[in-house]
Design a binder for these strands. Structure first.
Length: 618
RNA sequence: GCCGACGUAGCUCAAAGGCAGAGCAGUCGCCUUGUAAGCGACCGGUUAUGGGUUCGAUUCCCAUCGUCGGCUCCA
């Protein structure tokens, strides 16, 4: 029911595990939590806490774990931290590191721990939690109470499970850096106090940290918001509203090419297209369950002749009514309805982000309805189709996440089991690398999410394939079986690109704006050297247009160098310089956006080359 | 929504209680160009919006809108 399109990978660079730490043999992927890097980061968090507490003696400290690319620690401080504070804290941290203080572990009773942290309300709360017994990830109480321990180095003691490095000297003081300060709620709960969180990063050595910082720079360089403005692709303006996207002509061209390809592939593969309205009555969303569990993400209702209507946050109820518009036979199945459905979801202002998190977006949505005996093949079909589509769009490095039945869930357990088995079997059949998230499914059905890796190793979730056992029940969907009796169909929601907005954002960052030729909004710019070459330039432009290329002629009375520079900054794949020599030989002088300069080539030969590049989706 | 930073020309950024500036872009002119910016002139602003303090506010205060970094990683 819920097609999520969240930027879950927006933050996560990969942790590269380097061979040299595994004695030169090819590494089996070490669990991050067991790695030395994890201990280094966690230990660095303690060192930072010491430095912060020295600076603010009355400060309260909360938690400070190692995270994907570093660590953080949350503090309750008398004032807001400034960038200067961070510099100072970082300097003090280096002194502490140079002291080579050993980390000493000590087991304590709950009572001793309370005495030790009597002035630390957050620690006391943690101790209470520990004494009450831990909970596993499903919220079930653990049988054994955890042992309470503290770690001390130098003058600083923290309640901590560990593990840590032997001594602070194991941290490379040139491979740590404090990155930023941000607000964070105690225990992530917005009803609880807001603490100040200091983010830092730590690596084995300086080179690794520099590589990480380089990657951050590179990510900034690829930021789709900046490229979107520089290449005139899209905008978001205050006057219209936050999270609402204006697609400019060049961005719209990229979208159109994406949509055309998408439509063609869907049509070839047995999907039927449908179009549905943008609003629907409140009662519809009552039936679908959205007003029950998705209301906080829906815009306020519109009052129309005394009836409430809601902007649609999803397309499924509409597709269901198309299904229900007539009695369905088992012979009609499977049915596959596809729509580029524009939906609106209320997102809190603080989470909006360029094209990646918006309030109005177009899902490349589809719903499959099938019989039980068709279900495994249908899953094969949809996974195969998804993989083909993502690869065609330039993402061949991908990973799947299979989410199974959560503790709280509806629907027939036998259906859950069958669906999960079908999902996993498909992943195996198509040889997709996957991870299982036990209990991570939505309450209405299991799912597969596909995440792709971009050019600099970041992971982005695009596709989702989700079973839904709720809506067919809520809407009483049936088909008449061979036995003449009504049966409940299986229903699968899927979005391949997620949303066109978000996909476009990922695309921009993946290619840093240099789209492959087949999707470049302008494929070639003709650059006449002097005004007397204009006529020939126009002729070349017309020939290319006739050959189906998207081309523009730079008629400005600028120097050639300026035109080349502009075209290159606009990431146009082909620059075609024409002057006296080219006119004489009916040629164009080809230059590529990477700076390569293949030189003069016959016009006809260039057209062949361009067509071939487009055909091969280069 | 909450915490923090920020909002000055289309873009990137100056000016810190006392006349709002530069580069790029744009317009016009000159130049007629051979692989990443030719030269000159001109145009461009209710300093996000609304209110307040002040003789005077872009600058200080309050509110609103928007942008950015976070608010998931559990001692």
């Amino acid at each position: 029911m819920r097609l999520t399109s969240r930027p879950s990978g927006a933050r996560g660079f990969f942790i590269f595990i380097h061979r040299e730490f595994f004695g030169g043999t090819m590494a089996v992927k070490e669990k991050y939590e067991e790695s030395k890097l994890f201990r280094i980061r966690h230990s660095t968090a303690h060192v930072m806490a010491q430095a912060v507490l020295e600076k603010f003696p009355g400060a309260k400290y909360a938690i400070g774990p190692a995270i994907d690319e570093g660590f953080y620690y949350d503090f309750d401080l008398p004032r807001s931290l400034t960038p200067e504070d961070l510099t100072e804290i970082e300097e003090r941290m280096r002194q502490i590191i140079r002291g080579k203080f050993p980390f000493v572990r000590k087991e304590v009773s709950a009572g001793e721990a309370r005495k030790l942290f009597k002035d630390q309300p957050y620690k006391l709360e943690l101790i209470d939690g520990l004494e009450a017994g831990g909970f596993d990830e499903n919220g079930e109480p653990l049988f054994e109470k955890p042992v309470i321990s503290t770690f001390t180095h130098d003058q600083f003691t923290d309640l901590c499970r560990g593990p840590h490095v032997q001594n602070t000297g194991e941290i490379d003081s040139s491979a740590i850096k404090l990155m930023s300060v941000a607000g964070a709620y105690w225990r992530g709960d917005e009803k609880r106090p807001m603490l100040q969180r200091i983010y830092g990063t730590a690596w084995y050595n300086k080179e690794e940290m520099e590589q990480y910082l380089w990657k951050l720079e590179e990510a900034k360089r690829r930021d789709h918001r900046k490229i979107g403005r520089d290449l005139d692709l899209f905008s978001v303006v205050e006057e219209i509203g936050a999270g609402l996207i204006l697609w400019h002509p060049k961005g719209a061209m990229v979208r159109k090419i994406t949509e055309d390809f998408w439509m063609n592939e869907h049509e070839k593969s047995g999907y039927q297209f449908v179009y549905t309205p943008h609003i629907g009555k409140a009662s519809l969303w009552e039936t679908s369950g959205h007003l029950g569990f998705f209301k906080e993400n829906m815009f306020s209702p519109l009052d129309i002749e005394g009836q409430s209507y809601y902007l649609k946050p999803m397309n499924c109820p509409f597709h269901i009514y198309i299904y229900k518009s007539q009695l369905r036979s088992y012979r009609d199945l499977p049915i596959r309805y596809a729509e580029k459905g524009t939906v609106y979801r209320y997102e809190r202002s603080g989470v909006l982000h360029g094209l990646l998190r918006v309030r109005g977006f177009t899902q490349d949505d589809a719903h499959h309805f099938c019989r039980e005996d068709q279900m495994p093949q249908e899953i094969d079909f949809v996974l195969d189709f998804s993989l083909k589509m993502l690869r065609a769009f330039g993402f061949s490095d991908l990973k799947a996440y299979l989410s199974t039945k959560p503790a709280k869930s509806g629907g027939d357990p036998a259906r859950w089991e069958a669906a999960e088995a079908a999902l996993e079997a498909s992943l195996k059949r198509y040889n997709v690398e996957y991870e299982v998230d036990e209990g991570g499914g939505a309450f209405y059905g299991p799912k597969i999410d596909l995440k792709v890796h971009d050019a600099i190793g970041r992971e982005w979730q695009l596709s989702t394939i989700q079973f839904d056992f709720n809506e067919p029940e809520f809407f009483d969907m049936t088909y008449i079986g061979e036995d003449g009796q009504p049966h409940r169909p299986y229903m699968v929601h899927r979005a391949l690109l997620g949303s066109l907005e978000r996909f476009f954002g990922v695309l921009i960052e993946h290619y840093a704006g240099a789209f492959p030729v087949w999707r470049a909004p302008i494929q070639a710019v003709v650059i006449p050297i002097a005004d007397r070459h204009l006529e020939y330039a126009q002729k070349v432009g017309d020939s290319l247009k006739a050959a189906g290329l998207r081309v523009s002629v730079d008629e400005r009375s600028e120097r050639m160098n300026a035109k080349i520079r502009d075209a290159q900054n606009q990431k146009v794949p082909y620059m075609l310089v024409v002057g006296d020599k080219e006119i004489e030989n009916n040629q164009v002088a080809l230059r590529l956006r990477g700076g390569e300069n293949p030189g003069p080539i016959a016009l006809a030969a260039f057209i062949d080359k361009a067509r071939q590049d487009i055909e091969e989706k280069i």
